[in-house]
Simulated scan of single mutants.
Amino acid sequence: MKSPIILQNIPCTLVTGFLGSGKTTLINQLIATKAADERWALLINEFGRIGIDGALLASSQDSHTTNDIAIREVSGGCICCTSQLPLQIALSRLLSDHQPKRLLIEPTGLAHPRELIQQLSAPHWQTALKMQAVITVLNALQWQQDKYRTHEGFQAHIRDADVLVINRYAQLRSDERQALQAWLANLNSKIFIIWAEADKQTSAHDIDISTNYSALLNAQLSKPSSVISKQQRVNIAQPHKAVVSLRPPRHSLTENTLTNSANHDSAQPDTDIELPYRYHETQQDILLAGWRLPTEYVLNADQLQDWLLTLPNWLRIKGVVHTSNGWLQINFTPDSFSTKTVSAQVDSRLEIILQASNSQEGEIDKEIDWEIDWEICDRELMAMVMVD
């Protein structure tokens, strides 16, 4: 049997943007900068709605190679909102089959980029992929409309981006362009703005339009992503975040395990923390918490599921956990509950996302009327560890 090819540090650029923002146009512009002898790969998450030029258009979900561009399309929902499995399969096959020198990923315009960034920040991708600046596209004509400007999904793309390419801004008045820049600064003060070359006819008195748009855009392909780097350090203690070591009931542990688990209450980088531990943090309007447990900790499967489903205001629950029913992959959303038996892992990992506000779309955020006591959650989770 042929051994799989192990690829490392493949430059990868995530191109995001709301529906109709112009992601496809931008991707074509990026591809136009490709050296003739380089093979690139493109992962698309909008099957049937892709406006790629005829030379790059793939007509099915299978991977096609045209002009040294390998294309794979992922259908059946947003790769950011569904199970990570479609993303992992598509990426793995695309990289192993075509061995590209560079990878571009275009999620659907309905995607929430933070979820995809979290997935691409996972340890198993940190070796294979070298994540470059996250590029987001903004359609200025959409921004003029209040229904877009105040939409959480529209704003999310700005918050989770390193670089913003603004197009279709020629019709904006001077005061509107200033208002746009103020709006952007409020959402993401560190974002790097590029004004698309197609709108060069706009007066340069109020904005800095690059005289070499293609070169400026191409340069982003080699800039590391601070957004993704921050997510990769999610287990490092920061304000509004805590990392706490845990211990299940003493009678279910060996003396050696107790010794290794003790004296780790201080926050440390992920690579230095001994299992088990928990982290939690607040991001915008969500609460995020995760646990990593040693493989020898076997949790009661029924109790675990019941406990997870009683958590308040949960939006997403996912993990791979060693349970009394074997190793289970857990993927819960409010609309679906999925568990799947998987092969043994190096440790158990569980993550939950909770809604931190009671507001509805279009309403002003309200303060939550409940609180999470993470120490109680820790004790409840550790109580599920099976006793030999």
Rank of each mutant, 00 (worst) to 15 (best):
T323V: 00
W183I: 05
R247N: 10
V387P: 09
P276R: 00
E255F: 11
M131Q: 06
L87S: 06
I31Q: 01
L287M: 08
F337S: 10
T257M: 11
W40I: 00
A182D: 13
K366D: 08
N212H: 11
A161N: 08
M382S: 09
T259D: 15
N28R: 10
R102D: 04
N260A: 12
K200D: 15
S214T: 10
K190G: 09
A58M: 09
P107L: 03
A111L: 08
G77I: 07
G109V: 04
K340W: 11
P123W: 04
T259L: 12
N331I: 03
V243E: 00
H280T: 08
E351L: 07
W143V: 04
S96D: 14
T339P: 05
I105A: 04
I191G: 01
A301S: 07
P276H: 04
V243Y: 05
L253S: 03
A237Y: 09
N218I: 02
R72I: 10
D37Q: 09
A140P: 00
V227G: 01
N212T: 13
L293Y: 00
H322D: 04
I207A: 02
R177F: 06
K147W: 12
M384P: 00
W291F: 03
E281L: 10
Q29S: 13
Q283A: 13
A133K: 02
N313P: 08
A111D: 06
E73D: 09
I372P: 00
W40M: 04
A122G: 11
F154P: 00
E361G: 06
